[in-house]
């Protein structure tokens, strides 16, 4: 994501604000990661180390690509999102369908969250991020 122009900085700041606002929507949310589809971290919110941010970005990319491939290979269809249920929480990886840049959003919550709310928040945020990156008024 371009950050060497004032416009690019504004987009980054707006995306950062959206990630932080996302975490405020549900008490159970623990992290949100915005990354490129080839696994490079763009932004992250939540209690994450730099190493964790990089690793989440890489794994999100792999999950998104595997999900896209699996949907295409098995159903001849278009991927939407991946959900992961773990012992201590839930994770959603979704595409940010911007026309300017291919991005992935990963959002995780602890065991206090439920999948419907997590998915709703993640997909709403992906839509907001799309509008920001595409510079379309919300």
């Amino acid at each position: 994501m371009a950050s060497d122009t004032s416009g690019g900085v504004q987009v980054l700041e707006a995306c950062n604000a959206e990630l932080n606002a996302l975490l405020g929507r549900l008490p159970a949310l623990r992290f949100a990661s915005l990354s490129t589809v080839d696994g490079r971290a763009v932004l992250a919110a939540g209690v994450l180390t730099d190493t964790a941010v990089e690793r989440i970005a890489a794994v999100s990319s792999s999950l998104l690509a595997l999900g896209e491939t699996f949907a295409r290979e098995t159903a001849g269809s278009t991927y939407r999102h991946t959900t992961i249920t773990a012992d201590d929480g839930l994770i959603v990886v979704a595409r940010v369908p911007s026309s300017r840049q291919r991005l992935a959003l990963a959002v995780g919550c602890d065991h206090g969250g439920n999948l419907a709310l997590l998915l709703g928040c993640a997909l709403d945020s992906a839509a907001t991020l799309t509008r920001i990156v595409d510079r379309v008024d919300a």
């Binding site: 490129t36 589809v37 080839d38 490079r40 792999s62 690509a65 595997l66 491939t69």
Partner: peptide, 10 residues
């Protein structure tokens, strides 16, 4: 082959 290619962001 099954492929998981993504565009290079850089």
């Amino acid at each position: 082959p099954v492929s998981t290619e993504m565009p290079l962001a850089t």
